[in-house]
Design a binder for these strands. Structure first.
Length: 836
RNA sequence: GCCGGAGUGGCGGAACUGGCUGACGCGCACGACUCAAAAUCGUGUGAGGUUACCCCUCGUGUGGGUUCGACUCCCACCUCCGGCACCA
């Protein structure tokens, strides 16, 4: 009696061992084959992986295995983004040291990765929380410091009063802490920043180099950088010599400026309102606005509020005196914190002017109707013809923008300027579980960087986790007390640690020489292997991680440490797997664990279902029933190969073997084989649409089953009856084409078919264009665009032959009634359309 | 509000460059095998009509348009998802 199902447990263990022993995924530095760096975003070691995470690694594994089969020298490393807040919070609750829990989680996740059968060059494993790694994260900090790209400044940051720590912007969801949902406060603290804004233009320009990135990711980055061109105009404050510059993208509306507004944080305010008769009232207003929570300040639908300062400014183009206001809708961080208000042509200014009864002056006319400031219902923000604008009257507003900017530069009352939304990267964290910032404070010498030879600044392990508003490192005397690197006198260490995004912004360089203790990476080796040929990860990193990594690489490039400008040549962002319409999460209780499924059906089943679920860049709904379909398919293939190799007679319809030869079904089997090869190869090289690749293989398997009752084959013994060649080719193609998707079962079937070497050493098949061509084709006959009939015709038939055949068709005759059609459209080999 | 992406059977999804809508899989129904079940194999499966089994009508979010022909291109709109959001 044969086993009813294929013995996946035995098989999977066997091959996982063999791959490890044969070092299938080991990168060979001496190889002359072309290189292929296949990288998956390294995971944060949380408790355990679910099937949604699996998708990422399975996709990467398919790519890597395919490239191995195409004889590339591949680098497929894996590591751990191991510093981070969750481990520290768990430590506060449970008392278990973050290092302990992190290393445990790594163990679990590594086991899970192996159980999926995904392969990596584990000799290159890295963990960002280990001193031999973060030493070099600190080195990168020092390099940026040297270049003036790491600096300290007072800034208002997000503070969670419950967790007693600052939060990264990305940890603030709708103004509240993502973990405890407490409203986040703004606190003014001395913080370390990386000057990513210096690279805004380069980061924007080089998006053009990233042709093989998803368009939407490039767009998101572009929007995030937020370049806008405009003019900075100098307004003089009346009765003083103070110049108040303000930025505008709509210099064409300058004659329509009827008031000016400052952000409440504007540094000049205090001086300006001194002695004003309502000084107290103004101060009260400012304090109220400042007190508003982040959510309120940031939301666009909050009512605009303001107060008059009692001061006036002079519009430099017409010397008009206009009132100076303070308002809650002006941001200090963008532009200069001062904005000229043109209510006729800006909706926000319009709303504000209506509320406080400020004048509205039209300076651009709507070509469709005469505008009048008094009767307008909303601002007119489109282009138009200049009016009430002195010597610029009568020209189109688009031209006026240039002309006015030229004029201002000539008169030195303004200058063209470019602004970005991108802000400098705040990298300080008042947390324990991160890389210490390698800085020392000396009373005599001030801020001093740690000497490179003294790296790493070790993170002390004995520590109290209880949060109290500052980094827990503050209480570790041995850590804080140190000597000044310059004067060697007593000094204090920086107690903040670095944002974990710093760790992950260079890890892809470390994989090339993970154990080098002399330098972070070897320049020659990274120059050979980078940029990464294929990067795979979730779209949630579209901006942060991907922007930071690009920035760090650009800095390293400009400093001569690396020879490439962009880290990732190709990017693939996979969609999320959801369950019951929601993202899998422990709190929702909809997590599907791979462990049980692998135990029940095996890794190959889980892999093929995960790949079959839909196009990998799109979100997909997990369906346990679907897993069974994948399971059935693999068993179907298994039985086919088993019968073909062990007992070919069972494939025969009880000895009803037909004579060998060129019967049509054989030709269609060979055709189907080559169509499948073509389709699968295209999906591998192009879109990664493994769902359609798999369905093509399923079709081929179905085809083999259809012809198998006439076609026996003994693959193992190589006994080939005439005409069995196509059959053998079909089955072998199935095994090879399946190998990247379901590697264990493919290896086993390959071996049982009499092959000594791994299927990954087999030749990837090439389709034969000739095999795909059909002698006879079915052409669709349409009448007035509707399908009415079909004809079989030789594929080489001329138009006249097709016409003749069509007109002879009885169905056509029924529709035409014997009349000659008005039009005869022939799409060769496909379709005929008659217009009657 | 702005910028993306998407809307196709009961479900997940296919469809090349404008050319047979619904491949492949799930589910369902019927049949074979079986004492029976499971497993497996086979057949069918968009809706409606007609039942002479050959056909006919409708059908890819909605409404228009271009075309011999539109899921595909153009215009307007609706819904859902994602990102950004008072950026001057």
């Amino acid at each position: 009696m044969k086993e009813q199902f294929y013995p996946f447990k035995k098989i999977e263990k066997k091959w996982q061992k063999k791959w490890a022993a044969e070092r299938l995924f080991k990168m060979d530095p001496a190889s002359s084959q072309p290189k292929f760096y296949c990288l998956m975003m390294f995971p944060y070691p949380s408790s355990a992986l679910h099937v949604g995470h699996g998708r990422n690694y399975i996709i990467g594994d398919v790519v890597a295995r395919y490239k191995i089969m195409r004889r590339f020298n591949i680098l497929a490393p894996m590591g751990w983004d191991a510093f981070g807040l969750p481990a520290e919070n768990a430590a506060i609750k449970s008392g278990i040291h973050p290092k302990t829990s992190t290393l445990n989680n790594i163990k679990t996740m590594k086991r899970q990765l192996n159980s999926w059968g995904v392969g990596y060059d584990w000799d290159r494993e890295i963990a960002s929380c280990m001193p031999d790694y973060y030493k070099w994260t600190q080195w990168i900090f020092l390099e940026l410091y040297k270049k003036g790209l790491a600096y300290k400044k007072k800034a208002s940051v997000n503070w969670c009063p419950s967790c007693q720590t600052v939060l990264a912007n990305e940890q603030v969801v709708d103004g509240a802490c993502e973990r405890c949902s407490t409203q986040v406060e703004l606190r003014s603290l001395e913080q370390w920043f990386f000057k990513i804004t210096d690279y805004a233009q380069k980061l924007l320009d080089d998006l053009a180099l990233l042709e093989d990135w998803p368009e939407r990711v490039r767009l998101m980055q572009k929007n995030w950088i937020g370049r806008s061109e405009g003019v900075e105009i100098d307004f003089k404050i009346a009765d003083t010599d103070i110049i108040l510059p303000c930025f505008t993208t709509r210099v064409d509306t300058i004659y329509g400026a009827t008031y000016m507004v400052l952000a409440v944080e504007h540094p000049l305010i205090e001086d300006l309102i001194k002695g004003a008769k309502n000084e107290k009232e103004i101060k009260k207003f400012i304090n109220e606005v400042k007190k508003e929570s982040l959510v309120e300040r940031v939301s666009a639908d909050v009512e605009k509020k303001g107060i008059f300062t009692g001061r006036y400014v002079i519009n430099p183009v017409n010397n008009k005196k206009i009132p100076l206001w303070i308002a809650n809708y002006i941001l200090m961080e963008y532009g200069t914190g001062a904005v000229m208000a043109v209510p006729a042509h800006d909706q926000r200014d319009f709303d504000f002017a209506k509320k406080y009864d400020l004048s509205i002056e039209v300076v651009i006319d709507d070509p469709k109707e005469q505008l009048d400031g008094k009767n307008m219902k909303e601002a007119y923000i489109e282009e138009g013809q200049m009016v009430n604008s002195g010597k610029f009257n009568g020209i189109p507003s688009l031209d006026a923008m240039e002309k006015i900017a030229d004029y201002m530069e000539q008169e030195k009352i303004g200058r063209r300027k470019i602004h970005y939304k991108l802000r400098d990267w705040l990298i300080s964290r008042q947390r324990y579980w991160g890389a210490p910032i390698p800085i020392v404070y000396c009373d005599a010498c001030g801020i001093q960087p740690v000497n490179e030879k003294d790296l790493p600044v070790l993170l002390p392990e004995k520590i109290k986790f209880k949060p109290h508003g500052e980094s827990p490192l503050k209480d570790v005397k041995d850590f804080v007390e140190t000597k000044c690197p310059r004067c060697n006198k007593k000094a204090r260490r920086e107690i903040d640690t670095m944002d974990t995004f710093v760790d992950s912004s260079w890890y892809f360089l470390r994989y090339l020489s993970p154990k080098d203790d002399k330098r972070p990476f070897d320049k020659d080796i990274v120059n050979k292997w980078l940029p990464v040929d294929q990067y795979i990860g979730g779209v949630e990193h579209a901006i942060l991680h991907l922007m930071y990594s690009r920035f760090i690489v650009k800095v390293l490039h400009d400093m001569g440490h690396v020879g490439f400008k962009e880290p990732f040549a190709k990017l693939f962002t996979q969609g999320m797997i959801v369950k019951d319409g929601a993202k899998m999460s422990k709190s929702k209780g909809n997590v599907v664990s791979p462990d049980k499924l692998i135990d029940k059906y095996g890794a190959d089943t889980v892999r093929s279902y995960t790949l079959f679920i839909g196009p990998p860049e799109k979100d997909a709904e997990w369906n346990d029933r679907g897993v069974e379909g994948a399971w059935r398919f693999l068993n179907r293939v298994w039985r086919l190969v088993e019968q073909a190799t062990s007992d070919p007679s069972t494939l025969l319809g009880a000895g009803k073997r037909q004579g060998a030869g060129e019967n049509p079904s054989d030709r269609s089997l060979r055709r189907r084989t080559h169509l499948t090869i073509k389709k699968v190869t295209e999906d591998m090289e192009g879109s990664f649409h493994f769902n359609t690749a798999l369905s093509a293989i399923m079709e081929l398997v179905n085809e083999i089953y259809k012809v198998s009752d006439r076609r026996p084959l003994d693959l193992a013994r190589g006994r080939q009856a005439t005409g069995d060649k196509d059959f053998k080719e079909a089955i072998e193609s199935v095994i090879i084409l399946l190998a990247p998707f379901v590697p264990h079962i493919a290896e086993e079937m390959w071996e049982r078919s009499g092959n000594k070497k791994s299927v990954f050493k087999a030749e990837w098949p090439k389709h034969d264009e000739k095999a795909i061509i059909q002698e006879k084709v079915t052409m669709v006959i349409q009448i007035n665009g509707r399908v009415r009939s079909k004809i079989e015709i030789s594929s080489g038939a001329t138009e006249d032959e097709v016409k003749k055949a069509v007109l002879e068709n009885p169905v056509v005759n029924k529709w035409t009634g014997g009349k000659t059609p008005k039009k005869f459209i022939i799409v060769k080999g496909r379709l005929v359309n008659l217009v009657i």
